[in-house]
Design a protein around this nucleic acid. Structure first.
Lengths: 158, 158
DNA sequence: TTAAGATAGTCAACGTGGTTGACGAAATAG
DNA sequence: CTATTTCGTCAACCACGTTGACTATCTTAA
């Protein structure tokens, strides 16, 4: 049974995974822009997710995202500038500055989650629930390690 | 049949696609480094692919990659510096400077293609040929548009 | 043929995201 | 009380992207 169907060239698979990711993210941000969040960049949603409802610190954020605390701090600066995050002093530890979402940040994150759910439904409507679930299962199997590394620009370029 | 299995939250799908992409690219470059190409960055392989065996110009490269001609020119500069590309004058048009791969560039690209094929085989060995093909088919369906846009850092950040 | 327009490449300035190294201030451990 | 660790920040740097401006060259059309 020597390759009954001619196998696709291997380089297509990463390109397709990237294209899929990009399509979802582009669709997300097109919808977010429509819903009042035109400033949110692809990276920002992930940062908000990593900050979480409870807030965090720049150092911890860096660890969660897989980047340095300095890089995390700069990213927080930008999100503060556009009104999605704020810094507050930690009364219990004068070194720390808590990073937490503003109401606008919470709104953006909530909408992102809703939109992602709708986009997944759209995929399921075209491909079928089972096929989408299969993609998720298979990718979980093959890519379990890289679950939440967000140093995209530096990693890809670098 | 109202959702027989509880549907996964939609935000996981893009994360898994990204993790799959990243896993393949990381594995590729780990192997490339072993085979004598430790300088090649994730972006570079795609640039080499876009340059092709026949070579091209910075402007055309920019169009293929979905970035400006200036950005393409700068990327070419870096690939020239590490020995993967070279520039030659076009005898037929003094404005143009042909960009083409050096033998080292050709070697890197050839090895990349081979490694990607082996990685795909590895996925197929774990998931099954049909599942890998299904992923490719489904992503082709959903993400046909974003086939070869490589302005990753600028797109994701920016 | 010459003037006008389009195209190729480069330079400069800038923004975003990443890195490392150094440092002061504050908490913690001994 | 001192030594160490940790948190945040500053500074310098690199990779990659952008837009705008400019020269040189090719092409087109009056």
């Amino acid at each position: 049974m020597a390759s009954p169907e001619p196998t696709r060239p291997g380089f297509q698979l990463p390109l397709l995974l990237l294209a899929g990711f990009r399509t979802l993210i582009d669709d997300l941000h097109a919808e977010l822009a429509r819903e009042g969040h035109p400033d949110l960049r692809p990276l920002h949603g992930f940062v908000l997710q990593a900050v979480g409802i409870d807030g965090t610190t720049a150092s911890e954020l860096g660890q969660r995202l897989g980047i340095s605390k300095q890089a995390a701090g700069k990213t927080v600066d930008r999100l503060v500038a556009v009104g999605y995050l704020e810094r507050v002093d930690d009364p219990a530890d004068a070194r720390r500055r808590l990073v937490r979402m503003t109401p606008r940040g919470v709104d953006g994150l909530r909408r992102s989650a809703e939109i992602f759910d709708r986009l997944r439904e759209r995929w399921a409507a075209t491909l079928g629930q089972d096929r989408v679930a299969a993609i998720e299962d298979d990718l979980s199997t093959m890519a379990a390690t890289n679950w939440f590394r967000l140093d995209m620009p530096g990693w890809f370029g670098g």
